[in-house]
């Protein structure tokens, strides 16, 4: 945004020398800002404006509804959220969900990308598998959630039916068990979004100069050494960026959890996004819901700052 304003200022402010090249350069730079203006407007309308409204609601909205009812800003909503007896539990569950899913995406994505990148596979097979791996990501989250609800059903799900057929003594129904519900949702998230991260990591791997690997082979490095001393260091920034992006987006992800468990059983899979939904649309306390959203936003900012600092250090 700052660069944009500077760009516009450059356009409207006369330059010190009036040589044609300088004028042309200013006009070219400023024309570029005009081209990104629609995207900026879109971003402002769909991201900045709603975020600002949420901020205002969290400090100025009290009671029910989305009207601004307080005449001066108040921390009442944030304090009420902080003092909620389940605040710590929901925060922990959110971190578990976001952290667990992120770890799964990155580790599994990395492994699969490595397989596709390193193994001497038929190129046509590699291309096909890359497409096949994308299928989970291409399915709508609602459909995935319903699919896994059926898959994990203790009576009609294929896993439970198979376990029964081999005489397993357990009742397989993780979505109805407090100890397993959140893990089941986390694994579903892992299944669904790993393909995206696989693609990103694979692209990063393929950008590494093959000459480095050749040199490593000449120096006697084995496969594991190549992975740990070449591949990972070379794509470390990509992994960090993806991890940050993944954590922040997963922490706010709503669809899967709501459709699969609605935060149950006994709030064992309640995360911040479902808590926000409940507070806003069942209890109509939009001020409190905005305060919860603000807390989630703050966490996302802190995580982003930590990761960006780690990247910048490189």
């Amino acid at each position: 945004m700052l660069e944009y304003i500077v760009g516009v200022m450059n356009y409207i402010t006369p330059t010190k020398n009036f040589e044609e090249d300088a004028v042309m350069r200013n006009i070219k730079i400023s024309a570029a800002y005009w081209f990104i203006l629609p995207a900026m407007l879109f971003f402002i309308l769909l991201a900045i404006y709603p975020s600002a409204f949420v901020l205002i609601l969290s400090f100025f909205a009290t009671g029910k509804g989305i009207t601004i009812s307080a005449t001066h800003p108040s921390f009442a909503n944030i304090i009420a959220v902080w003092e909620n007896v389940n605040f710590g539990k929901f925060m922990y569950q959110t971190f578990f969900y976001a952290g667990g899913a992120t770890l799964l995406h990155i580790l599994l994505g990395f492994t699969l990308a490595l397989i596709l990148n390193i193994l001497p596979l038929n190129p046509a097979f590699t291309r096909t598998m890359r497409t096949v791996y994308l299928i989970p990501w291409a399915i709508t989250p609602t459909v995935v959630a319903i699919l896994f609800r059926i898959l994990l059903s203790p009576q009609v799900g294929p896993i439970a039916i198979y376990l029964k057929s081999i005489g397993a003594p357990i009742v397989f129904g993780p979505l109805g068990q407090p100890a397993w519900a959140l893990l089941a949702v986390t694994l579903t998230n892992g299944w669904m979004f790993t393909p995206f991260y696989l693609l990103m990591i694979l692209s990063a791997m393929q950008a590494i100069d093959p000459g480095i690997y050749e040199a490593a082979v000449v120096d006697g490095a084995n496969g594991f050494q190549q992975i740990f001393f070449i591949t990972i260091p070379m794509i470390k920034n990509t992994l960090l960026t993806l991890g940050m992006f993944d954590f922040v987006t997963t922490a706010g992800y709503f669809d899967l959890t709501w459709i699969m468990t609605q935060g149950g059983p006994i709030k064992s899979s309640e995360i911040i996004s479902t808590w926000v939904y409940r507070t806003a649309f069942q209890s109509f306390e939009f001020g409190k819901a905005s305060a919860i959203g603000l807390i989630l936003f703050s966490i996302s900012v802190i995580v982003s700052i930590i990761v960006l600092r780690a990247i910048n250090k490189e």
Partner: peptide, 21 residues
């Protein structure tokens, strides 16, 4: 009652009934 009923919804109950379960 079928085991694991804390993760069963009405649609699944209906499915079980029409399957004579």
């Amino acid at each position: 009652i079928p085991e694991g009923f804390t993760s069963m919804d009405l649609n699944q109950i209906v499915d079980l009934m029409v399957s004579d379960k």
